[in-house]
Lab assay of single mutants.
Amino acid sequence: MDSLVVLVLCLSCLLLLSLWRQSSGRGKLPPGPTPLPVIGNILQIGIKDISKSLTNLSKVYGPVFTLYFGLKPIVVLHGYEAVKEALIDLGEEFSGRGIFPLAERANRGFGIVFSNGKKWKEIRRFSLMTLRNFGMGKRSIEDRVQEEARCLVEELRKTKASPCDPTFILGCAPCNVICSIIFHKRFDYKDQQFLNLMEKLNENIKILSSPWIQICNNFSPIIDYFPGTHNKLLKNVAFMKSYILEKVKEHQESMDMNNPQDFIDCFLMKMEKEKHNQPSEFTIESLENTAVDLFGAGTETTSTTLRYALLLLLKHPEVTAKVQEEIERVIGRNRSPCMQDRSHMPYTDAVVHEVQRYIDLLPTSLPHAVTCDIKFRNYLIPKGTTILISLTSVLHDNKEFPNPEMFDPHHFLDEGGNFKKSKYFMPFSAGKRICVGEALAGMELFLFLTSILQNFNLKSLVDPKNLDTTPVVNGFASVPPFYQLCFIPV
């Protein structure tokens, strides 16, 4: 009986604490739906499609509103004006990374994606500088992407125009580009180590996009005490870190300090320079996690976009025909596509942009946080508050993009057929937390897609009208449904 009384008292205290925290903070924060004790607004949000729920709530509470995930307040920004004001106009104040408990377990605050403060700034600055020195957006990395595009075309030829699921092959190409940047090595598509790495990356994007992960991140005790797919994700990350550590040891034994070959060499050189400046942010643990982040951000996002792009091109054969006509006119058949071609191919450029806009790969991006107490639109948001960005509300804005739910390359073309930029184009987020590999991803999408369409016609196994382009999961990332196609050599 005594234990029951204690339990009831504990629960009562928890409920009172929950109510007090919510009521004391709500006077400062933007308005929002009334949260339930302990669980907050979790029942009012469709976990399978958070973005749709945010759109519905914005119609009631406006472009800036507050939700509670458990006891934790989260300020939501919906629509271009609110997102721009926060991420661009007040970029420094909104540059923090929001709480992501599962990532905390995986990387302990290291790396480039989930770190904060001085650690994040130094690692991000170093990573950007190193990638630029190796030619991100310049010639040397373009050579690597072109080489991988040629290998991709050869792998597709091996399908002999038979029906195939493109998931694996389209994942190999961007993964190999990242391998060449980090390890100075590309792998054969049949290499077992490479296959294991690909498998872990593919599993992780599916797990991260599941409703279960949303629950884990908002009720963090689940991570330590409950079984579930989150444990598989943590094991996959541990596998990748151990693999990278092996490569780091190989580099330490063979590195030429006067001739760095890749990202690992550059990081080890930085560690050597910083060894007298303790404590340094440049450690082996930081290198492991930064490399894992580059793999995660640079492989599955690009391969998922490529997979979605081919599905949309199957669905819209008239678009595919126009792209192939432009390829034939500008590039021809006797040389590989290059980035200089893009400025002469406005329709193809528009298609690449429209694919990214339409699929809305990361509907709410990753959570941000404010780095200080900030007054925002007459609300006071306390330091450390998590900020949720609705990228969907920007990419699918119906004023900027008429009929935003329709796939239409003319969203990025003017009346004369010239490519038209849009400030609403934010597939990689915006501001200080914009994806480090934005330029690389854009290069890969253009070169891989043009190389495929230069060499193959795409054949659907069903009537294009019957192809479903609805994402199968739409949590962290929008993942396309399973499909097969035939690559018919031109």
Rank of each mutant, 00 (worst) to 15 (best):
426 M>K: 05
455 N>E: 14
439 A>D: 15
51 S>F: 03
166 P>A: 04
9 L>R: 00
194 F>Q: 04
292 V>R: 12
78 H>Y: 10
155 E>T: 06
294 L>I: 14
62 G>T: 00
481 P>S: 05
97 R>K: 11
437 G>R: 03
289 N>I: 10
246 E>A: 10
305 T>W: 05
101 P>Q: 08
420 K>L: 09
328 E>T: 11
322 K>R: 15
143 D>Y: 07
179 C>P: 00
23 S>E: 05
453 L>K: 02
136 M>W: 15
132 R>G: 10
344 H>R: 13
16 L>H: 00
464 P>N: 07
123 I>R: 06
462 V>A: 09
312 L>Q: 03
286 S>C: 13
409 P>R: 01
4 L>H: 00
426 M>G: 05
157 R>Q: 12
119 K>P: 07
200 K>C: 10
265 D>P: 03
36 L>Y: 15
23 S>I: 08
131 L>C: 06
52 K>F: 07
74 I>M: 10
59 K>S: 12
347 Y>R: 01
366 L>G: 04
218 N>Q: 09
124 R>E: 05
343 S>V: 13
68 Y>S: 05
415 E>I: 13
143 D>H: 13
389 I>P: 08
155 E>N: 08
336 S>T: 15
258 N>D: 15
333 R>C: 12
300 E>K: 08
69 F>E: 05
213 I>L: 13
193 Q>N: 12
122 E>T: 13
476 F>V: 13
122 E>G: 11
299 T>V: 13
330 V>E: 12
66 T>R: 03
242 S>Y: 09
428 F>Q: 05
128 L>G: 10
9 L>Q: 01
342 R>V: 11
306 L>S: 01
278 Q>P: 14
485 L>M: 09
279 P>R: 15
43 L>S: 10
213 I>W: 08
195 L>P: 01
255 M>S: 06
193 Q>D: 09
26 R>I: 13
279 P>D: 15
46 G>L: 03
380 L>D: 15
182 I>T: 04
442 G>R: 09
78 H>R: 06
35 P>F: 02
254 S>V: 14
289 N>E: 13
248 V>I: 06
445 L>P: 01
345 M>I: 01
481 P>T: 03
378 N>L: 02
359 I>L: 08
205 I>H: 10
98 G>N: 08
328 E>N: 15
215 I>C: 14
110 F>V: 13
454 Q>E: 00
177 V>G: 00
234 L>W: 06
238 A>T: 14
36 L>P: 04
65 F>M: 12
40 G>V: 00
193 Q>R: 09
319 V>K: 03
14 L>H: 00
181 I>F: 11
54 L>T: 02
274 E>V: 06
394 V>T: 13
160 K>R: 09
27 G>V: 14
371 T>Q: 07
48 K>E: 06
301 T>A: 15
402 P>S: 11
188 D>P: 09
135 G>S: 12
294 L>Q: 00
212 W>S: 03
119 K>T: 07
6 V>K: 02
371 T>M: 06
427 P>N: 08
39 I>R: 01
392 T>D: 06
110 F>S: 15
72 K>E: 11
54 L>I: 13
110 F>G: 14
485 L>S: 02
421 K>H: 14
111 G>D: 06
181 I>D: 00
395 L>R: 08
417 G>C: 08
187 F>Q: 05
59 K>V: 08
92 E>Q: 07
39 I>E: 02
371 T>R: 07
299 T>D: 01
385 T>R: 02
434 I>E: 11
120 W>R: 05
204 N>C: 05
48 K>S: 12
85 E>G: 09
106 A>S: 08
85 E>L: 06
361 L>I: 12
323 V>N: 00
451 S>R: 05
435 C>E: 14
353 H>K: 03
185 K>A: 09
188 D>A: 09
321 A>E: 14
480 P>G: 03
341 D>M: 06
99 I>Q: 15
346 P>G: 03
488 I>E: 15
311 L>I: 06
241 K>M: 02
450 T>E: 00
342 R>C: 06
256 D>P: 12
342 R>E: 02
136 M>V: 13
3 S>K: 02
425 F>M: 11
303 S>P: 04
310 L>S: 00
282 F>C: 07
277 N>E: 13
217 N>Y: 09
445 L>E: 02
365 S>K: 03
397 D>M: 05
339 M>G: 06
482 F>P: 15
254 S>N: 12
410 H>V: 09
50 I>K: 05
445 L>F: 09
75 V>Y: 01
50 I>T: 10
448 F>I: 04
430 A>T: 14
292 V>F: 12
212 W>P: 02
70 G>A: 08
51 S>G: 13
428 F>D: 02
139 R>Q: 12
181 I>K: 00
258 N>C: 11
62 G>V: 01
63 P>C: 10
271 M>A: 13
305 T>P: 02
275 K>A: 08
86 A>G: 10
106 A>L: 11
488 I>D: 11
150 R>V: 09
416 G>A: 15
99 I>A: 13
412 F>T: 00
417 G>V: 04
189 Y>L: 05
197 L>H: 01
347 Y>W: 11
472 V>A: 09
281 E>K: 09
168 F>C: 07
70 G>P: 06
